[in-house]
Amino acid sequence: MEFFREFPSLSRAELASLRRSIDGSFRDFTRSWAETLENFFHPLLRFLVWFENLLLATPWPIILLVIGGLCYAGARSWKITAASVLAFVVIGYFGMWDDTMSTLAIISVATFLCIAIGIPVGILMARSDRMQATITPVLDVMQTIPSFVYLIPVVMLLGIGKVPGLIAVCIYAIPPIVRLTNLGIRLVDKDILEAADAFGASPRQKLWGVQVPLALPNIFAGVNQTIMMALAMVVIASMIGVQGLGVPVLRAISNQYLALGVMNGLAIVALAIIFDRVSQTYGKRLQAHRKGHGHD
């Protein structure tokens, strides 16, 4: 009866030694590889620092102009442009300019990295069912595992700082772009692909001439989601030494500063809305060709 009352499990000593041996071997791995990895990521760190300093050193009116210009180039809407510039003015007026620039720097670099890695992975997934079956569970883990769990090995390997923060943000933010690139390519109309085949298009001509362009609206939805998720990681990244709007939020939590927390939180929300509206209207503009003019 004893067997049914308690779940048969490893003994306490066995579990402890198992954990010790895993921790030990990872520590050994850390000792022998940490420096190599640090050197590997060093160019990234330098770029990140350079970009952050650039944003901080540039006079604020120029930054406002550039932001306005980018918003207009993306959305082609004066309303969105004016609202974005106004949001930045308010953020600056309430003393959050420097933190916002730091956050902007890490979000931009993280998004760029996610796109550079995510789109090719998504394309690979779309081209083979086996690849899709292999990568999908990895993406599931990346999206659902609590971020603190993967912060542990990242911090053990790379310590506290910008690069581990960046990696943590990327792990969390990359799945949507991979998934939506894959989906977008798989959803391309079979009749159009058959036509490309019938005219003798090579796989490369099909990919770049037909599949990727027709998947762009979905790929863009993925970029949009990736940016949103990267912003959601700002506070957690600040726990391992990333400068930006997350730091005051963290301070507000530990000291119960309501106003400080809300103000910086709202600044993150403002950034998210600006990114979202600009990238979505841009994505919609890419689909302009789909609309007919009175014909079915």
Binding site: D191, E194, A196, D197, A198, F199, G200, S202, G209, H289
Partner: peptide
């Protein structure tokens, strides 16, 4: 060879047109 056949020797017209919308 098949690619050349499709490129140079036989072209095709489809019921659902198969045009590139973009």
């Amino acid at each position: 060879q098949l690619q050349d056949l499709r490129r140079f020797k036989a072209s095709m017209v489809f019921q659902k047109f198969g045009l590139l919308p973009h």
